[in-house]
Design a protein around this nucleic acid. Structure first.
Lengths: 150, 150
DNA sequence: CACGGTGTATTAAATAACCAGTACACCAGT
DNA sequence: ACTGGTGTACTGGTTATTTAATACACCGTG
């Protein structure tokens, strides 16, 4: 219902979960006070080990994003939305800068880059949904990957 | 003189070398028939193990980009420029798509993305140079990293 | 209180990737 | 031939990630 992870992405699973939770909170898909899916439930749903989910939750807790109510579950902290918005923004900016840096290093001109961005954006707009919601028909498994051709 | 790698990037060193060599060939900084720096020379210059360089060269050879003349060194194959251009283009497109996908998943609107791209491009244009040449004053160590907070 | 839900802690192991060190095989000069 | 350059092969160690199996501590409900 909520998230989708992809092993073999390069990015650790627990990191993907952390990121997606942050995105969902930043966009108010998950709101303050709301209970997250339980460790066991999520681990079953994603077909991964409970420990991996737990690790993601621990990191989120360490960052003050979620609070664990022992015996009940984990809930989104009150200030979390703003924090996650900032964090997500910063993360995306870093990622964007890295990609654009590589594009320039790779010999693309700023105009080529802009054009490519435009084209890609138009295409993605129809197939990709923000975090926490399901994509219409598209499997993020293969698209969101950091392609590592062997 | 030629390349710069950054351990702790997330991306393997040998992969950085492969990529940069491809970029350099694609931009004709390295031309067909030209000898690449030797394994040992490059390993000394980058302060890494000769094996790491060798591994990069092996991968390049496997892709038909370079040819190894045993006892003499490695040279750029004749068709390499076109291959590298295509490969680089494809790689950058994939990377761009992945980043933009994540940006949308992260809740950025296409307009925000375009604006951010523009801003970042203007900044990068002054500090980043294409592969094979030296950057004016900028250390790619911290900018090109795929941030992985531990 | 007992029970079934929650997160947590601990230990161990399997797997994979990356890198370093060392020794080997080849070629071109002298 | 010898020597000094080249790439290559093999072996081992470190680190990160994920999984697994248990046991524990807490909360709400009946």
């Amino acid at each position: 219902m909520f998230f989708a992870v992809d092993p073999g992405n390069g990015v650790p699973i627990y990191d993907q979960i952390v990121r997606q939770v942050k995105y969902a909170i930043a966009q108010r898909t998950l709101r303050s006070g709301q209970l997250l899916p339980s460790v066991r439930q999520l681990s079953t749903q994603l077909a991964i080990n409970p420990n991996t989910v737990a690790r993601a939750f621990q990191q989120l807790q360490a960052e003050g994003i979620i609070e664990t109510l022992r015996g009940r579950g984990v809930v989104v902290c009150s200030g979390a939305a703003e924090v996650c918005r900032r964090d997500s923004k910063s993360h995306l900016a870093t990622r964007l800068e890295a990609t654009l840096t590589e594009a320039i290093q790779g010999g693309m001109t700023p105009d080529e880059i802009r054009k490519s961005v435009d084209k890609t954006l138009h295409r993605l707009q129809k197939t990709v949904a923000p975090a926490g919601q399901a994509s219409p028909d598209h499997s993020p498994t293969s698209s969101g990957a950091t392609g590592k051709p062997s």
